[in-house]
């Protein structure tokens, strides 16, 4: 089957494999309705798959949060993950850059490949993974530093930008490069106009929407390939939300964006394809966004997107 990695080194690993196998059989055999897995996994992408997820299970302690997720996420597009709360869509998102490793009780079983390279392999360099797969969180979380330092934080930690005494001693001061980087990222995040005259102010003084765009800019500064967004606009007012939505569509020209949202209109507006998770941590349908919202295969998905259930 797939490569296995348990964040909590659970001894019951083999049991778990059995259980997940059982679960897959149950889903396929037990569900007599039209939505068997094969129907939507055959879905043809416009681009290359950037991330391919194969039979992913996630447990919190003994509780299964995700079961048997298999999907390919295409390059340079927006993929929306929707579903009712508690359906595991955020958990799924956090599996894609292994942020779940930080939760002690979480264990992951299955395979996620980034451009064909397994991210749950032994000896994986988490730093490189998270540089390539960036993340923006539900509530804006800028560091209590200046706007400039927020942007250059990542590159500094990776040794790409160095200022200060040591850098000057080594003749390596990249102050100019920092300026350029800050400007590029803020422009990309559509924040430059608003903050260009106060880059040395504390980021906590910005409004919520500005903070969230700063977090996106901070993420862009390490030059990721994939950007994961966990309900990035849920804490914001409608105007700030609209700005973030525009930004997401723009980013998709260069980046692969995966966005979790509980707002179906938002998913319909911004995404190219949509995955619907329903209660119990299963992926029910994954297809072009238009198809999901206009003519879903599954009755349950139709009920959910039309608001009959959820």
């Amino acid at each position: 089957m797939s490569n296995t990695q348990n964040a909590s080194h659970d001894p019951a690993e083999s049991n778990r494999d059995d259980r997940s196998a059982d679960a897959v059989t149950q889903t396929t055999a037990g569900e007599s309705q039209e939505e068997t897995q094969t129907e939507w996994t055959d879905y043809e992408f416009r681009g290359e798959p950037k991330l391919s997820v194969d039979d992913l299970d996630v447990y919190y302690g003994d509780e299964r949060a995700l079961q048997g997720i298999t999907m390919d996420i295409p390059e340079n597009s927006v993929t929306a993950l929707i579903g009712p709360s508690g359906c595991g869509k955020s958990t799924f998102l956090r599996c894609l850059n292994r942020m779940n490793d930080r939760i002690k009780s979480a264990s992951v079983d299955g395979s996620v490949e980034l451009e064909g390279e397994e991210i749950y392999q032994d000896g994986l360099d988490l730093v490189t993974l998270r540089k390539r797969v960036g993340m923006v969180f539900q509530s804006p979380n800028p560091f209590p530093k200046t706007i400039r330092d927020n942007i250059s934080y990542g590159p500094r930690k990776h040794g790409d930008i160095e200022t200060g005494l040591l850098a000057r001693l080594l003749g390596d001061d990249s102050g100019e490069r920092e300026e350029k980087l800050v400007e590029r990222c803020l422009k990309q995040a559509a924040l430059w106009e608003e903050v260009s005259d106060r880059l040395d102010d504390n980021a906590l003084g910005l409004s919520g929407g500005q903070q969230q765009r700063l977090c996106i800019a901070r993420c862009l500064a390490v030059d990721p390939e994939v950007i994961l967004m966990d309900e990035p606009a849920s804490a914001l007012d409608p105007i700030a939300t609209a700005k973030i939505e525009d930004l997401i569509e723009e980013l998709a020209e260069e980046y692969t964006v995966v966005v979790v949202t509980h707002n179906m209109q938002q998913a319909a507006r911004i995404s190219d394809q949509t995955a619907v998770f329903l209660t119990g941590g299963e992926l029910v349908e994954f297809d072009d966004t238009d198809k999901i919202f206009e003519n879903p295969e599954s009755q349950r998905v139709e009920d959910y997107v039309t608001g009959k259930f959820g």
Binding site: M99, F137, N141, F143
Partner: peptide, 11 residues
């Protein structure tokens, strides 16, 4: 969530 911000960009 503040620490997550740093970890998520590869610190």
């Amino acid at each position: 969530h503040m620490k997550d911000g740093a970890v998520a960009i590869g610190a």
